[in-house]
Nucleic acid binder design. Structure first.
Lengths: 201, 201
DNA sequence: TAATGAATGAAACAACCGTTTGAATAAGGT
DNA sequence: ACCTTATTCAAACGGTTGTTTCATTCATTA
């Protein structure tokens, strides 16, 4: 199917260069189709991008929330599961397109298109709400909203750093894949920091 | 001075759109000069970008390191100072160009130019080393290098989240400037998480 | 087999990019 | 005043972008 070949090539091109810097000539060369195919199968570059994003963000493994937490041990394991699943979203060995999703998301984070607001709303915001619900399980009822937000952001920050800037880490210390080699320790450490001072109640 | 006007306009344009998407026609319109001035005063777009980056990354407030830490209280205050200064790098009210630096750094993080490796080396890596030296002051001598790195990255992650994605935070919960309104609490919270389980020795 | 609509292909389109040209102007020294 | 140099300007350059055109090929159905 020509349409699928184009979308697959487009995802690679958009992931590498972002929307503006990507060219339909490169996309067509990758896909092995004629340039005119873009305006035939889609109505143009913009619509191709929209459909490509719709496809890459279509499926996502669900993140655990705090609903069924009944103890401190639950809280710890659910938090670790949340972090692990979040990090895995951009590095799923069984799903090579996860890497493309991560790169495209990174481009969009810097240079948001009209579609991205919707993606944040549908794809990303529920995950943050899940994280929030986990933390609330361990926070006193009278905790200020600001403190809750700060805790959420700090956890999210650590995760997003590994999620987005993972490849940049190599520039500082390591040779090889630091994250993959130390994933268990990283997850445990972020979880421990996130749950610092918290007790199930 | 025409050259300065061009650089000032270029910094705004590069910050907003990144190197590739920025156009010299827009830069010249901003600066109120003719298009040919770019190739007269500089040798082209690339050299203009190089000089603009050299200017915006020229000065940076130094970050404290762990050298003179003598107690747990020192460790806490130095860590808080490090975090506060780091966050302030991209939000200095007394230096409006800090916002431009932050945006340009963000673009470079995604789409690194040849110059960026040098900037990381000269501008950014020493800061990470400072953070590392602070943490080492509270870690047992037999702590594994992996754990030290993980601690550094987690702290760095929280900071960089607020540094880079601060404006994106509003999309989730808040109206207004969450970071500025709650800076003290954020700094204290990140510091507390970072020093979790650490004791001066 | 003939006819119809979908899909592809080579070539050209206007618009924009960074860069260059060459003439016009401004500034400074003798 | 003059000459020399530095600076500005409008216009055009070649190249690349997304898009369009229109003839050709392919697949399907009658």
């Amino acid at each position: 199917m020509t349409k699928n070949k184009i979308i697959a090539a487009a995802l690679e091109e958009f992931a590498e260069h972002g929307y503006h810097a990507a060219t339909i000539r490169n996309i067509c060369k990758r896909a092995g189709v004629n340039i005119a195919a873009i305006n035939y199968h889609f109505s143009g570059k913009a619509e191709l991008y929209r459909q490509a994003l719709e496809m890459i963000f279509a499926v996502k493994p669900p993140l655990p929330c705090g609903e069924k937490i009944q103890s401190d041990a639950d809280m710890k394991s659910v938090m670790q599961a949340w972090i692990r699943t979040f990090l895995n979203r951009g590095n799923d060995k069984k799903a090579p397109e996860s890497q493309l999703m991560k790169k495209i998301a990174h481009h969009e984070m810097l240079n948001p298109s009209d579609i991205f607001d919707e993606i944040i709303e549908v794809y990303f915001k529920p995950d943050v709400r899940s994280l929030e619900s986990i933390l609330r399980k361990g926070l006193p009822g009278d905790t200020s909203e600001q403190e809750i937000k700060t805790r959420v952001f700090s956890t999210l920050g650590s995760c997003m750093f590994y999620f987005f800037h993972g490849r940049c880490i190599e520039k500082f210390w390591t040779e090889g894949d630091f994250i993959e080699d130390n994933l268990d320790m990283i997850v445990e450490h972020i979880a421990a920091q996130s749950l610092m001072g918290l007790k199930f109640k």
